[in-house]
Write a protein that binds this DNA or RNA. Structure first.
Length: 791
DNA sequence: ACTTCCCGCCAAAAG
DNA sequence: CTTTTGGCGGGAAGT
């Protein structure tokens, strides 16, 4: 341990330890909500007393064995949840960081030194070490592993799961740029969400299943599978006959041209698009969609690149562009591989062997069944779908509405964690790590490349687990084993304990949950690229006009979309306005959906187009699933039962149906229409939402539980989401801090009792968790992050 | 020679 | 304006 640590990043290590300590202390000490904000600022600066550091260090070393567990355990469940990880994580990181070889080499050399160094300073050693690292050791995949090691798969929502990019960069000893790459991919899977400038919130895999389900659905909408087929066919043909065929792609559009092509083109151009649209986030989502849609679950980079590029008509197919795309795909693949969602393989085709990746993540996305019903949420996504082709251009960034970020996940997580703990306790701890692997589906690291590293990681994890038996992670893993698909399961299990907390959350969670940003592929096939372009152009124009006013969209929560809306004025920002816009937009979207492809053009022509475009890119996904429902009041916690109730609720029901209906656009052809959504369902949906809004949170329970009510409480979440969202909207205006304070009281109402408890355990932030408060906190800063989504 | 993909320039957003 | 975020592609390590 120590050796490796020293080698890799002594400096980092110390830093991290100090940071951690500092944070922990803060959390524990700082009960006041306000304090949290202050704490963040310092980040690196943190000065922990040496003592603490030492202690931590000692712990860390020992931690592998028992320390961690012992210390954390009891409270651990929650307290540790937040920070406890860090200490251990540090160890992990260190270990992982050092590649075996390096370790071996340097062990002898520095072993002694390392200790010394560690104790002494951290700073110097780095250079030499850093320099030495081989390219592989610097790989994004490995870096991602290190990053992941720092956080639990299923974080305790109660705890503060904030991620400070600066800290991470320092601790991992990498340039910031690299962290962004990782965060972008994780963000695309809703494993993290951006809170503010340098801050992200960790959600882990809590929402992963749900997110994947949504992505799968989107992928289906886009006909990705068909596209893949086409490309393959083409290839085959080409191969046979060298001619070139050309584009093939899906450009299905015949009509596209209709609209003013000129416009579209001009605007469309690459430039038009804001860079965000080319974003790694979007690519990542689309890439994942390809996997989820293709039957063999294997996707070659070549095909992925072609599809992602653009499906535009652009024939040009620049080679450079293609090349760049491939580069990015490698980047994404590395991260996804670290997540064990995919693994590298080679497909030998006629031409020879080409690099490809195989999906190793969860297979059957429960989506629809459980969470899916939540469809309510999903819809939003769908709606947005307008243009995917735009890929390249998509400047659409605006599309996303905003995210109200939230830690919905937190709440949910908490429950699950607790449950897990129990399980763990009952079960032997040791195996844990295995379980984790199992969950992923791959016992061994999918990546052969980094096996060594991975192994290390795993070992670390094991150690971690052992230490913290209590930790949620373990529990989570176990749960995963049981049911990979739905993160929720844990929740179910959660005993009374979990419930209480969760209950509190109920309010808070909604906001978070509700919004998860997701990319929509936009079904766009139906739309011709040109249309997309046109739309974009228009949007831009409008924007430009609007933009003048431009308060930071993010801060306001306003998404570009809002601005775009025809009527909206520059200043619109006001909250009330926002709500209205929000609603309006939603309605539009709904309409759009309902209309189905054919109408698209029309819609595009109209103001609606705007909405379409934006939506097109990222779609916020609702994430309800994770959270437990609120069970609100009851401390008792019979989550299970509660859920049932939820299902029944009318609203929920209404919602649920819709998703299913439209989603499946079984379209025979790829061509045009694909997304058809049942109007009625949509309408209902909207109506419900509206109603919900009015109602506000109190009623939130509603759960859509269409047919398959997942046993899990999560389903409730869905229902909540809408509500939450609404709630969110209202809140926005306030600054986070203020909100927190104010809100808490108000929020608390719903849930009364529980709130206080949380406060005890958690940092102010955590406290925030309380329903409303949390909402306020999390206001999304970034467009991308969240899109509002779901009504 | 080809594949993988790190590095970091530099510009677009955000603050 | 400064800082953060992140597209992009050269070119090097790895195979």
């Amino acid at each position: 341990m120590t050796k490796s640590d020293g080698i890799i990043s002594r400096g980092g290590w110390k830093m991290s330890s100090t940071l951690l300590d500092g944070q922990q202390l803060k959390q524990k000490l700082e009960i006041n909500p306000s304090s949290s904000g202050a704490a963040r600022e310092k980040k690196k600066v943190v000065f922990v007393e040496p003592q603490t550091q030492l202690t931590t260090l000692g712990k860390l070393q020992e931690a592998q064995k028992a320390m961690g567990p012992l210390s954390t355990p009891t409270k651990g469940s929650e307290a540790p949840g937040g920070e406890p990880w860090t200490p251990t994580s540090n160890l992990k990181m260190l270990i992982s960081a050092a590649s075996p070889e390096i370790r071996n080499r340097e062990k002898e050399k520095n072993s002694t030194e390392e200790h010394e160094n560690s104790s002494q300073d951290t700073e110097q050693g780095e250079e030499s070490e850093r320099l030495q690292l081989s390219r592989k050791e610097k790989s994004l995949g490995l870096l991602c592993h290190k990053f992941l090691a720092r956080y639990p798969d299923y974080p305790n929502p109660a705890v503060n799961n904030d991620i400070c990019l600066d800290d991470v960069a320092i601790e991992l000893n990498v340039e910031r740029r690299r962290i962004y790459d990782i965060m972008n991919v994780l963000e695309s899977l809703n494993m993290v969400s951006r809170l503010a400038k340098n801050r992200y919130t960790w959600h882990g895999r809590a929402q992963l299943a749900h997110t994947l389900a949504l992505l799968q659905r989107e992928g289906e909408k886009h006909h990705y599978s068909q596209q893949i087929q086409q490309i393959r066919q083409r290839h085959a043909e080409d191969m046979l006959e060298m001619e070139g065929e050309e584009k093939e792609n899906e450009d299905i559009d015949g009509e596209i041209t209709q609209k003013e092509p000129g416009f579209s083109e001009a605007t469309v151009d690459a430039k038009g698009a804001s860079r965000k649209d080319k974003s790694l986030r979007v690519m990542s989502q689309k890439f994942v969609m390809l996997f989820l849609v293709s039957s063999p679950r294997v996707v070659s980079l070549e095909i992925a690149a072609k599809i992602l590029i653009g499906e535009d008509q652009v024939v040009d197919q620049d080679k450079s562009k293609f090349k760049t795309k491939i580069r990015r795909l490698y980047d994404i693949s590395n991260v996804l591989s670290s997540l064990k969602l995919i693994k590298k393989v080679h497909v030998t085709e006629e031409r020879g062997r080409k690099p490809a990746f195989k999906w190793t993540g969860p297979e059957n996305l429960s989506l629809q069944g459980l969470q899916v019903e939540a469809s309510s949420c999903p819809r939003p996504l769908e709606s947005r779908s307008s243009v995917d082709n735009c890929t390249k251009n998509l400047f659409c960034s605006p599309s996303t509405k905003r995210g109200f970020t939230r830690h919905h996940s937190l709440v949910k997580l908490a429950k699950s964690i607790q449950d897990d703990r129990r399980k763990i306790n009952s079960a032997p701890s040791s195996p844990i790590k295995i379980t984790s692997d199992a969950a992923n589906g791959c016992f061994y690291p999918s990546k052969m490349d980094h096996l060594a590293e991975i192994c290390k990681m795993q070992l670390d994890q094991q150690a971690m687990n052992a230490q913290k038996q209590s930790d949620p992670k373990e529990a989570a893993h176990l749960q995963q084993k049981n049911s990979v698909l739905s993160p929720i399961p844990p929740v179910m299990t959660s005993g009374a304990e979990a419930c209480p907390r969760t209950v509190q959350l109920s309010l808070a969670p909604p906001p978070c949950c509700s919004l998860v940003p997701v990319l929509l592929p936009h079904a766009v096939y139906s739309l011709s690229p040109k249309l997309c372009e046109i739309l974009q152009a228009r949007l831009k124009d409008r924007r430009g006009a609007l933009s003048s006013s431009r308060a930071s969209a993010r801060a306001l929560h306003l998404e570009p979309e809002f601005n775009k809306t025809p009527h909206n004025n520059p200043d619109t920002v006001e909250h009330s306005m926002e709500l209205q816009h929000f609603l309006e937009t939603e309605e539009r979207e709904e309409k759009m959906q309902s209309q189905v492809t054919p109408t698209l053009q029309d819609s595009t022509g109209h103001t609606n187009t705007e909405t379409l475009i934006p939506t097109g890119y990222l779609i916020p996904i609702s994430q309800q699933p994770l959270l437990s429902f609120k069970e609100t009041s009851t401390s008792s916690g019979e989550t299970n039962k509660t859920p049932t109730y939820i299902y029944r609720t009318p609203t929920a029901g209404s919602i649920a149906p819709s998703p299913q209906e439209f989603t499946p656009s079984p379209l025979p052809v790829h061509r045009p229409t694909h997304r058809v959504s049942p109007n009625p369902s949509i309408l209902n949906f909207t109506l419900q939402n509206l109603a919900l809004i009015h109602n506000t949170p109190s009623t939130t329970h509603t759960v859509p539980a269409p047919e398959q009510p997942s046993p899990i409480p999560c389903t409730h979440m869905h229902a909540h989401t809408p509500l939450q969202t609404h709630g969110m909207i209202f809140i926005k205006p306030v600054s986070p801090l203020t909100l927190i304070r104010l809100q808490q009281p108000a929020l608390t109402t719903p849930k009364s009792g529980s709130a206080p408890q949380q406060c005890f355990f958690h940092t102010p932030v955590s406290t925030v968790v309380t329903p409303t408060a949390s909402k306020s906190l999390y206001i999304p800063q970034r467009k991308l992050d969240v899109s509002s989504e779901e009504h």
